[in-house]
């Protein structure tokens, strides 16, 4: 019993060290969770052009690269329109739409929920399709932070920035037909892919691409996060001779998709950890 008493201080010390180390570990996780910003859907497009040479560049891509991607060339009447313009800036945020030409304010539209209701009725009046989902449009526009600048210059435009916290809603019917944000795309999944969804009993999937990091949630459960690097894609490109275009823009972007298979509800998930 006396010898046992000699061990007690050792055991107490060990337990104390262990408890103290546990206390030191926990605050680190809490601090990381709090570092989040308000969600926003940010798009920045820079366009440079020269009416004399009829050369232009959009989002960091040259005229030739744009044509290779299937973007049609600028028609002659547009060139006539911009011949006397040096600079145009269009910004859309949560409060207003501003158009500035050559540093002179051309138009400002109040961009509140009320003013947008008028816009939705206009859109519905001029399109004979399915009425616009106003609540969904609000989710997008309430976080909108769009900046388009068009300027006369011979230089390459600045890279396109797309950082969307709101994921695009995709609906896949039981037959495999795909709708994006409620619009029928006319595209369908292949029977093999549809069969895979049924075998895996996948009813809902959310995927976010954020500058190379792919976060996935299937049926409400989080899957391991995969991060791709440009160097890694270059190796795959070289190994299999894929001849991929310059993907650096993709690695500066954030986009996501919230996919529902069959009759399910979309989640209110946001990309970018919000």
């Amino acid at each position: 019993m006396k010898k046992m008493r000699n061990f007690l201080p050792l055991i107490i010390t060990v337990v104390a060290v262990f408890a103290f180390s546990m206390m030191l570990q926990s605050p680190v996780v809490e601090a990381a969770k709090m570092a989040q910003e308000a969600p926003s859907n940010h798009i920045f497009v820079d366009v440079t052009y020269n009416p004399n040479t009829m050369n232009y560049s959009v989002g960091g891509l040259t005229k030739d690269q744009l044509i290779q991607l299937g973007v049609p060339e600028i028609p002659a009447d547009v060139w006539n329109m911009v011949a006397n313009l040096n600079k145009l800036n269009l910004t859309i945020d949560q409060t207003g739409v501003n158009v500035v030409t050559d540093d002179v304010k051309l138009a400002t539209i109040d961009w509140t929920k009320e003013s947008r209701t008028w816009l939705y009725s206009m859109v519905n009046a001029y399109t004979n399709g399915v009425p616009m989902d106003e609540a969904r449009a609000e989710e997008w526009l309430d976080k909108a932070n769009i900046d388009v600048q068009v300027r006369r210059a011979d230089t390459l435009s600045e890279p396109l920035v797309i950082s969307l916290d709101t994921p695009v809603r995709v609906d896949i019917s039981d037959a495999g037909e795909i709708k994006v944000e409620g619009f029928v795309t006319g595209q369908s999944l292949t029977p093999e892919m549809n069969s895979m969804l049924k075998t895996g009993n996948i009813k809902h999937a959310a995927v976010c691409w954020s500058e190379g990091a792919v976060a996935t949630n299937v049926n409400g459960t989080t899957l391991p996060q995969i991060t791709l690097f440009q160097d890694g894609l270059s190796v795959v490109d070289k190994a299999f001779g894929l001849q991929l275009p310059d993907l650096s823009l993709l690695f500066q972007s954030q986009v996501g998709a919230d996919v529902v298979v069959g009759e399910g509800m979309h989640s209110d998930m946001q990309c970018g950890g919000n």
């Binding site: 899957l223 995969i226 991060t227 690097f229 160097d231 890694g232």
Partner: peptide, 16 residues
């Protein structure tokens, strides 16, 4: 150079 990474937790691995 980093080529690719996978980050997991026991929970996310079990889900996968």
């Amino acid at each position: 150079k980093h080529l690719a990474e996978i980050d997991y937790t026991p929970e996310s691995l079990e889900n996968a």
